[in-house]
């Protein structure tokens, strides 16, 4: 944690809302994105990120500063997402097993020069990846997001989730294989 951030946190502890505003502006995009990656719902992701920031503000006096501010925020967001998953009725979880392939854009002959086409392809791939992530369990999705989307190291993930390093390795391997399987199946479906 750098000095500027420490100063900001100190100001927040004294109830300075402008300092907190700076902290929100700094981390809001990452906060919303990690929530979105976890739950694939834009509005809900914003709500969760907002709630996380409110919790941070309420508890900032108890923040020990032995971890980075962002790690702390991250933990709060992940806990909120986990609570959200727990609240979901079982039927919803079942329906996630086979997410409907909405608005499937059929893959055209690739054309390197065609920028809009490439853009659509990329968008489509992202959509399928998001669907694939939806089919994973919470703990598998969590490791993929932390490692591949947020760029944490294995050790950081182990510390963060308080699980052994070996578990991070095997969990990530399983999560990636399942996601890969989903993508392959979904490609097959599109071709047929």
């Amino acid at each position: 944690m750098n000095k500027g951030e420490k100063g900001l946190i100190q100001k927040c502890k004294n109830g300075d809302k402008d300092a907190f505003r700076i902290l929100i502006n700094k981390y809001k995009t990452d906060a919303v994105n990690v929530a979105y990656q976890m739950i694939s719902d834009r509005q809900l992701a914003e709500d969760i990120a907002q709630e996380a920031f409110i919790r941070v503000y309420k508890n900032i006096k108890n923040f020990k500063e032995d971890s980075s501010f962002f790690t702390w925020l991250y933990k709060i967001i992940l806990n909120l997402c986990r609570d959200y998953f727990r609240q979901q009725p079982d039927e919803d979880l079942l329906s996630l097993e086979e997410p409907p392939l909405r608005n499937v854009l059929r893959r055209q002959v690739p054309d390197e020069e065609d920028a809009p086409e490439r853009y659509l392809e990329k968008k489509e791939l992202q959509r399928v990846i998001m669907e694939g992530l939806d089919t994973l369990s919470f703990k598998h999705r969590q490791v993929i997001i932390l490692r591949d989307m947020q760029g944490f190291t294995y050790q950081e993930i182990a510390d963060f989730l308080e699980i052994p390093l070996g578990t991070v390795k095997s969990r990530l391997n399983t999560a990636r294989s399942r996601l890969q399987k989903y993508l392959t199946n979904s490609k097959k479906k599109q071709i047929n």
């Binding site: 809302k17 929100i24 502006n25 990452d30 919303v32 914003e46 409110i54 503000y57 992202q126 989307m149």
Partner: peptide
Amino acid sequence: LVGNLNNYQSIGLSNDFTDKVICKI
């Protein structure tokens, strides 16, 4: 797959996000 995940584009968020949080507080 990992390459695609790494290049995942982040989503934008509403302009009044910060104001909303401060307002709620």
